[in-house]
Nucleic acid binder design. Structure first.
Lengths: 154, 154
DNA sequence: GCTAGTAGTTGCACATGACAACTATGGCTG
DNA sequence: CAGCCATAGTTGTCATGTGCAACTACTAGC
């Protein structure tokens, strides 16, 4: 099983490098950075998010999440609203422009992915998404469980 | 099929965020950054790499690759050697320390991944690596094919 | 041997992201 | 209800990573 594990480690790191590269490269197309894109999509999908929710969703520090949100507000893709119940909380919601940008990016991306899925046999296609989803969940569970830093001696 | 494509896009972006986070978090453990780790592994696996080869392997600009190599040389994990045949070319090779660090990281990582693979049914395990590998290749082929930037009008 | 091309380095600007210190608000306890 | 602690978010600061453009050094072809 360690052989499988090593192969998976190699394959995943390669996949991540190439996807990151593609994302970096494509970011310019929409005048929006990769993190901003993830944040925008997070807010659009959720309907509304607080800064803390956003930070958790993106696996970023809340200060970084706050700045990412600022960037999107400056671009008029998001709005900040004060929460009625709790004065500390900021509710981020997407503007019409934000939703539009998000929709456009998703469509373009879906097109690319659809083409890419064409490389695979039909019976494999459905498995791919299942596998990737479950992999993501497994990682997330481990990350959440281990809490903060990995190598703190405590 | 567009539905599959959207689901894959979502799953993959989630996976990438969480893996990136884990990598950021774990980077400190070995006094080596994520890019440095990839570079070190690339050199160790290949036996020797030029700066250009390294840049291609990491999907980075050659200037960045050069600096990543510098950092590893400063840490005495790599050495730069002049190519005998071509005076312009730098040959990067790993030192004993570099190989040792790489081996240790790979072992630790393989352990983590082995544990993670335990979440999956045996018949799925083998499929995971195959799927991730093929996904990576499909992306790489597309990135190589499209060459430079995505949205240049020229 | 001059010119064009290639490998790599360096200067520079900018993006990303963490940590810590801070403000402001909410909630709990005596 | 006053004081204290916890929580949400912001801001300052710093380190790191990255690309682009300009540069040097070398090679190769005419």
């Amino acid at each position: 099983m360690l052989v499988d594990a090593r192969a998976l480690a190699d394959a995943l790191s390669e996949l991540i490098r190439v996807v990151q590269f593609r994302d970096r490269d494509r970011a310019c197309c929409y005048d929006i950075s990769v993190s901003q894109c993830y944040a925008l999509k997070g807010v659009v999908d959720a309907g509304a998010l607080t800064i803390n929710d956003l930070a958790a969703h993106l696996y970023l520090d809340k200060s970084t999440a706050s700045r990412v949100a600022n960037a999107l507000v400056d671009k008029a893709l998001l709005v900040r609203q004060a929460d009625e119940a709790d004065g500390r909380v900021v509710r981020l919601t997407a503007t019409a422009a934000g939703t539009a940008v998000c929709t456009r990016i998703e469509s373009d991306l879906a097109g690319e992915y659809a083409e890419l899925l064409g490389d695979f046999e039909p019976e494999v296609r459905a498995a791919i998404t299942r596998v990737v989803t479950r992999l993501g969940r497994s990682f997330a569970a481990r990350v959440d469980a281990s809490g903060g830093s990995c190598c703190v001696v405590g």
